[in-house]
C-alpha cells in the first residue's frame, strides 16, 4: 500500500510539534497530498494561490465597514460605561485591517491555507461550480417558497433539488423520499413538538 506512506511519515515525523497538528489533521491520512497541497509546504514550483488576495480584500473591506458603522453611532458614554458602544467595533475593525495586511504579506511570501479534506471530498478534482450553484439554488428556493407555499412543499422542492444537484438520477425515488421526509418532519416537529414550521397553502389540508 504505497499510497499509505505519506500520511504516516507525516504523522510520525512531527511528533511533539504542537502547532502543526492542525496541518496534519487537514490532510486525511492515507491520501496522497494533491499537487496543490505540496506547494503549500513551501517548496513547490507554483507561486501560491492568487485567489487568497480576495480573502485579504474581504477582510479589509469588512474592517472598513465595521469602523464606518461604529463611527456612525452617536457616542454615548456614562459613568457606568466609560468606553461606550463604539470602542470595541473600532478595535475589531482595526484588527481586521491589520490581519488583512499580514495575510497579504503571508500570501505574497507563498503562504497557503490547505483546503479542508474529508470523507467525501476529493481535492484532486477541480472546483465544480455547477454543482455548487445548483445546490445553492435549491437552498435559496426553499428560502423564497417557505412562507407562501409552506414547509412541506418548499422542503420537498429543496430536498429533491439538492439531491438532483448532487448527482441523484433516481428522480421518482428522490421525490418520494423528499415528500415523506417533509411530511414526517412537519407532523413530528410542527404539530408534535410545537416547532414553528408554516403550513402555507396546505393549511387546513395537513
Amino acid at each position: 500500500m504505497s499510497e499509505q506512506e505519506p500520511a504516516h511519515g507525516h504523522g510520525a515525523s512531527r511528533e511533539g510539534d504542537r502547532t502543526s497538528v492542525r496541518a496534519d489533521e487537514r490532510r486525511s491520512p492515507g491520501e496522497r497530498p494533491s499537487p496543490d497541497e505540496r506547494t503549500s509546504l513551501g517548496d513547490g514550483p507554483r507561486s501560491g494561490d492568487r485567489a487568497q488576495y480576495g480573502v485579504c480584500a474581504f477582510l479589509a473591506l469588512l474592517g472598513a465597514l465595521v469602523i464606518v458603522d461604529a463611527l456612525s453611532i452617536t457616542p454615548l458614554t456614562s459613568s457606568n460605561d466609560p468606553i461606550g458602544p463604539r470602542s470595541v467595533p473600532v478595535l475589531l475593525g482595526v484588527a481586521l485591517l491589520v490581519v488583512a495586511v499580514v495575510y497579504g504579506v503571508d500570501v505574497a511570501r507563498g503562504g497557503r491555507g490547505e483546503p479542508e479534506a474529508g470523507e467525501d471530498v476529493d481535492l484532486s478534482t477541480a472546483m465544480d461550480w455547477r454543482t455548487v450553484l445548483l445546490l445553492a439554488g435549491a437552498f435559496a428556493a426553499n428560502a423564497v417558497l417557505i412562507e407562501p407555499l409552506g414547509w412541506v412543499i418548499s422542503g420537498t422542492v429543496m430536498f429533491w433539488g439538492a439531491a438532483f444537484a448532487l448527482g441523484n438520477r433516481h428522480h421518482v425515488r428522490g421525490l418520494m423520499i423528499a415528500v415523506v421526509l417533509s411530511l414526517v418532519t412537519f407532523y413530528v416537529f410542527a404539530i408534535g413538538l410545537g416547532v414553528n414550521l408554516p403550513a402555507g397553502v396546505l393549511q387546513g389540508i395537513l
Binding site: 445546490l135 430536498f159 439538492a162 439531491a163 448532487l166
Partner: peptide
C-alpha cells in the same frame, strides 16, 4: 448511504 441523499438531508434539517 448515497451521498446525494445524505447531503440533501443535511441541508433539509439545517434549514428546518
Amino acid at each position: 448511504v448515497p451521498r446525494p441523499y445524505l447531503y440533501a438531508g443535511i441541508l433539509f434539517f439545517a434549514s428546518m
